[in-house]
Write a protein that binds this DNA or RNA. Structure first.
Length: 268
DNA sequence: ATGTCAGTAACGTACTGA
């Protein structure tokens, strides 16, 4: 079972690029982020005409996530638990059953910029950085509950976290950014420390592997990228891993997203 | 040195969020 994540930066603006990638890569399951579309205005035919089932969790103008799958999507839930007042569309879950049942959790983790800290160095309440860190607390709680099921589970998407200096071409540029601040990286480590495996790094160590390049200043041509899209596997999921790759060449296509897909192949 | 893009409100173009 090939399971992919792709921040497409606007599904309606990305019809050609998304269609071409689906045709070329043929994932069994894919999660999308930043669809920037409501459920009603999502271009469903783009997905369904290729034989995929589709579940969306959209929002007008920004954010928005979706899951598509060649097999049926079961037990679909929308929204990250833990804050009923949070209206941002950033989380969707579904179960896909082939030889094994796999729980798929697609996320668009908050960016968190600008970083606003008070005189004591604490994130300012109501600010975007505080929202990011609070969202990661809720993610930790959900991830802990999912681990207790002791089943193959995949948490994937745009984490908006640069885990280590080698995950940025120029880490010094990101030092004070919400994607690389110590609090953000510590929250990501706490997630891993629950017992999840970061799929890409079990197979490909070292610098130079990125999933995002800014549209500005020729970042892709200079390979000034960052690795912020990740796939985390529960222990039962990690047992099944066969491969994990970043489709970096997608960034060189026509009208590309600023992110590229990352995928994992499970023996499931 | 600078450099972009998608979507909104609204039909110009400034604004938001990345």
């Amino acid at each position: 079972m090939k399971i992919a994540s792709f921040n497409i930066n606007g599904v309606k603006a990305r019809a050609d690029a998304l269609g071409a990638w689906l045709d070329a890569t043929q994932p069994d399951v894919a999660v999308l982020q930043e669809i920037k579309s409501t459920d009603e205005t999502f271009p469903r035919a783009l997905i369904e005409d290729r034989g995929y089932n589709l579940e969306t969790h959209g929002q007008k103008g920004f954010n928005g996530v979706a899951i598509l799958s060649k097999l049926p999507l079961e037990d679909v839930t929308r929204g990250l638990p833990g804050d009923d007042d949070d209206i941002q569309a950033r989380w969707i879950e579904a179960t896909v059953v082939d030889r094994r049942a796999v729980r798929i959790c697609g996320m668009y983790l908050p960016n968190g910029n600008p970083v606003e800290l008070d005189a004591g160095g604490q994130p300012v309440t109501g600010g975007k950085y505080a929202y990011k860190l609070a969202w990661m607390e809720r993610l930790h709680a959900r991830a802990r509950d999912l681990l207790m099921l002791e089943e193959p589970c995949v948490l994937l998407g745009d984490y908006n976290i640069i885990p280590q200096p080698e995950d940025a071409a120029r880490p010094e540029v990101w030092r004070e950014d919400a994607l690389f601040r110590p609090e953000s990286r510590a929250a990501f480590r706490r997630l891993l420390n629950l017992g999840f495996t970061e799929a890409f790094r079990t197979r490909t160590p070292g610098p130079g592997h990125y999933t995002f390049w800014d549209y500005q200043a020729g970042a892709y041509q200079k390979n000034h990228g960052i690795r912020i899209d990740h796939i985390l596997l529960s222990p039962q999921g990690a047992d099944l891993m066969r491969d994990c790759q970043i489709d970096a060449d997608v960034r060189a296509g026509d009208k590309p997203s600023d992110h590229v897909p990352i995928w994992v192949e499970l023996d499931a």
